[in-house]
Nucleic acid binder design. Structure first.
Length: 478
RNA sequence: GGCCCCGUCGUCUAGCGGUUAGGACGUCGGCCUCUCACGCCGAUAACACGAGUUCGAUUCUCGUCGGGGUCACCA
């Protein structure tokens, strides 16, 4: 049987970072096993789902490079892949269960049940409310709104073998007659997921551990339909730094945030993949390596806490190493961030020359765009503090002297430039510290930048000289 | 509270009966240096606890404690 896995997001917001990890593991396993990765949109909750969210989720997945073999946009033999378009299928199956007395109509209203729940809580705060089975044996069929409930077994247990957690057994007595279909005819998660996973021939379901409790219910449904359940692989939770469930209020959770911060897809993926999985001590992997190395037996069971510092470091490592992000890719990644600063069409040659010096100090693409900025403005934006501190009247003659000096340098490379400056500095009885900072401010507008001679080499002779001249005039004026 | 799951440095993790318990992030020192970084060197810091099993337990079993998840007409 060929491997088929799925990612089934509910489009009620953005793509959650925890779901990205589940998807990554799913994607990697499919790639390494020659399986099919199916994307199915679980939009059965009309109130929460939106088309914008669908768009956002698809965009983020594509940005991450986690492309699907079947699903929205690409189609497939099990279409449609939007659950909202599959209502007839769920209705049909639900009818079958009712006919076989494996499910029944329940006319209790939400209000009635809420009232019962509250009454019980009031009487005993620790009490466990379960649906009392009011309509379980009802035989009349009044013309009233109803939900469909599953007739759960009351004895025995439901077991399954998890790829990560091993054998998990849940007593059926812990199960209540859960709802399969609402009053409005829309199916609930457990019903829809079970039917679709079966119909779409999913063989392995990977998802967060918060779904472990749903698994017995789904298995019960498979049994009711007489189907073979798929295998399951639950992943440990990604908790916030505080050890609580990751949420909007509790840390950054959307892929978009990291994308906007200037992380690359592989930066994100490398952090996430090591969250719950490992391959010895290796920290950074290429996409190809991950596909080759990933396996379920190195997936941990313990939950983990999210660490922004570590994440940032992994993302930085990815940007810093030319072997991980090529010069051309770096340029392509950083351009949108330059555009955000108003630099729309940077000189490609200049950009390519500038990146090597910037990439080892810019932790994100946002930082990189900031660090690259001065190369593309004539004159560069001048930092006020830097001007006050270094472009002083006393520095003016030095800057003028440097301009004259460098004008005579014919080989515009770091070494000759440095040699020329050192000789000049000594001859003038100065130190590098005296002239380096004014020169830096003159060339970059800032007090921090890549090494001077590298900056000059990247800028080229004409630009360097004119910046020195311009700055010496400013310094003259105080 | 019921049910389920988990437990190695602050964090992510290696370890799969015998190790000075390793790596990375962080933190703290130092080196390098024209600035900021990068880099390099060093330090800090963990097997939750208690019983077993065993010649020997971080590793296997049980208990305790601790943590988390889940108990909707959400997914």
């Amino acid at each position: 049987m060929t491997l088929r896995m799925r990612f089934a997001p509910s489009p009620s917001g953005y793509l959650h970072i925890g779901n990205v990890r589940s998807t990554l593991f799913t994607w990697l396993w499919c790639k390494s096993q020659g399986g099919k990765f199916v994307l199915r949109v679980e939009d059965t909750d009309q109130e929460r789902s939106s088309i914008d969210s669908v768009r956002a989720v698809l965009d983020d997945l594509k940005w991450l490079g986690l492309e699907w073999d079947e699903g929205p946009e690409v189609g497939g033999q099990f279409a449609p892949y939007f659950q909202s378009e599959r209502k007839a299928v769920y209705r049909e199956h639900t009818t079958q269960l009712i006919r076989e007395r494996k499910a029944y109509r329940c006319y209790c209203t939400k209000e009635e049940l809420d009232a019962q729940r509250e009454a019980l809580k009031a009487a005993n705060p620790k009490a466990n409310f379960v649906y009392p089975g009011t309509c379980r044996n009802r035989t009349d069929e009044p013309d009233l709104p109803f939900v469909v409930r599953f007739r759960s077994p009351t004895s025995g247990s439901t077991d399954f073998n998890d790829r990560v957690f091993g054998h998990i057994s849940t007593p059926n007595s812990a199960q209540q007659d859960f709802v399969l279909m609402r009053t409005d005819g829309y199916p609930l998660y457990n019903l829809a997921a079970t039917i679709d996973d079966h119909l779409m021939e999913i063989t392995l379901v990977a998802r967060g551990r918060d779904h472990i409790g749903n698994t017995p219910q789904q298995i019960l449904l498979y049994e009711a339909f007489g189907w073979q359940p798929p295998e399951f692989a639950h992943l440990p939770m990604m908790l916030s730094a505080k050890g609580e469930k990751l949420s909007k209020r509790n840390g950054s959770v959307s892929v978009k945030e990291y994308r906007d911060k200037g992380f690359t897809p592989m930066g994100v993926l490398n952090y996430l993949v090591r969250f719950g999985w490992s391959s010895g001590d290796q920290e950074i992997f290429s996409r190809e390596q991950l596909i080759e190395l990933f396996s379920w037996d190195h997936v941990n069971k313990g939950d983990g806490k999210f660490d922004d510092k570590k994440f940032a470091d992994v993302a930085f490592e990815q940007l810093k190493q030319p072997s991980l992000t090529s010069l051309a890719d770096y340029a392509a990644w950083v351009k949108p961030f330059l555009a955000l600063r108003g630099i729309e069409n940077p000189d490609d040659a200049l950009l390519l020359r500038a990146i090597p010096g910037v990439r080892e100090r810019a932790r994100t693409l946002v930082d990189a765009a900031h660090d690259l900025d001065f190369y593309f403005r004539e004159p560069p934006e001048l930092d006020e503090k830097a001007r006050q501190k270094f472009l002083t009247p006393a520095a003016a003659p030095h800057l003028q002297g440097l301009r004259t000096l460098f004008e005579s340098v014919s080989t515009w490379q770091p070494e000759p430039l440095e040699a020329a400056l050192k000789a000049w500095v000594e001859g003038a009885g100065l130190t590098m510290k005296d002239v380096a900072q004014p020169a830096r401010v003159a060339l970059t507008g800032r007090s921090a930048s890549p090494p001077l001679f590298e900056v000059m080499t990247v800028l080229g002779k004409p630009r360097s000289l004119s910046r020195l001249a311009h700055a010496s005039e400013i310094a003259q004026g105080g």
